[in-house]
């Protein structure tokens, strides 16, 4: 980019614009992160007899060792991954399917469907989980009521296995619409003459979707995939809201719930800090690896 300078921009000027963002992120992102690391190296010891008084002392890496050897943390990662393996492909798959269907010429009720599928995005995770909680719970579940009326076996949404699907369903319900709109918008950005050329060459709509739309959509798919993955790491509201309703969800069901439990319920801030640093490091590492893999692949796929 060539820029003719009639009077040079002083070097401080760009910082006028990026300054507020940088200052605020130092305060709300970097400082808390560093503070967490400091906390994670400390612990509570009680002094004085009887109930005693709590005192903060330096404990080195003891909290990290406790976290690393806590089977519940790894089990939580396992459950998080299970939900991720269910939800991420399904969210992307449905979002892509709906986006491609919306883009088919002469589809009916497209506007209605597009808005309807997007609407759950407006429902907060806690509220969605409350609502689905009612829909799942025996005794109040409309699905079980319908099954009973039809003489079908009543599904149990809260067994140890089915609860993965019950939670995934809430995540999928809330996530498909947003990703669909992103993909659909990307589709609309593809020049229409590409399709016309393909039709002249005798391609049908399926072949157009498979050989023109899909490859061109790849960068957008990768991006939505990344968003879904980050969403998965943050999984918290849904299992937390369902926890009091059933036996199937523990208070440490996913790693973030474990952090919350340690910090607030078990009153051990320092253990919570160590666990959260561990999670942050692991997930950042995983995200960076994923990001590089998908970036290289999508760039390789680009013509």
């Amino acid at each position: 980019m060539r820029r003719k300078r009639y009077h040079p921009v002083p070097p401080i000027t760009p910082w006028l614009f990026v300054g507020p963002a940088v200052a605020l992120s130092l305060f709300t992102i970097l400082a808390p992160f560093v503070y967490s690391i400091m906390l994670s190296l400390r612990g509570i010891r009680v002094s004085g007899g009887g109930l005693g008084r709590r005192e903060e002392v330096f404990v080195g890496l003891a909290n990290y060792w406790t976290a690393l050897t806590n089977a519940e943390l790894w089990a939580g990662f396992g459950r998080m991954l299970t939900v991720g393996i269910i939800t991420v492909p399904l969210i992307l798959g449905f979002a892509l399917l709906f986006a491609l269907m919306l883009d088919v010429p002469r589809v009916r009720f497209a506007r209605f469907s597009r808005i309807a599928i997007f609407v759950p995005y407006a429902v907060p995770g806690v509220i969605a989980s409350l609502m689905w909680g009612f829909i799942y719970l025996p005794g109040v579940s409309p699905i079980r009521e319908i099954a009973a009326n039809l003489g079908l076996p009543q599904p149990d949404f809260f067994t140890r296995d089915s609860v993965y699907w019950s939670i995934s369903n809430i995540v999928i319900w809330g996530g498909v619409g947003f990703n669909m709109v992103i993909l659909f918008t990307a589709l609309r950005g593809i020049p229409a003459d590409l399709y016309d050329a393909a039709r002249i060459d005798g391609c049908n709509e399926w072949q157009i979707a498979r050989h023109i739309k899909l490859p061109l959509l790849l960068p957008a798919i990768v991006l939505t995939g990344l968003f879904s993955l980050i969403g998965m790491i943050q999984l918290f509201s849904e299992p937390t809201t369902l926890e009091p309703l059933s036996n199937a969800v523990s208070t440490t069901w996913v790693p973030m719930m474990l952090v919350y439990r340690d910090t607030f319920v078990a009153q051990s801030l320092h253990a919570g800090a160590a666990t959260s640093i561990l999670i942050a490091v692991l997930t950042t590492f995983a995200s960076v690896v994923l990001f590089w893999i998908t970036r290289r692949r999508s760039q390789g796929g680009r013509t």
Partner: peptide, 17 residues
């Protein structure tokens, strides 16, 4: 084995099950 204070429990207390 329902949980106390869940809507399931509330409904069961109300409907006599």
């Amino acid at each position: 084995t329902m949980q106390t204070w869940s809507p399931e429990w509330g409904a069961a207390m109300a409907d006599g099950s």
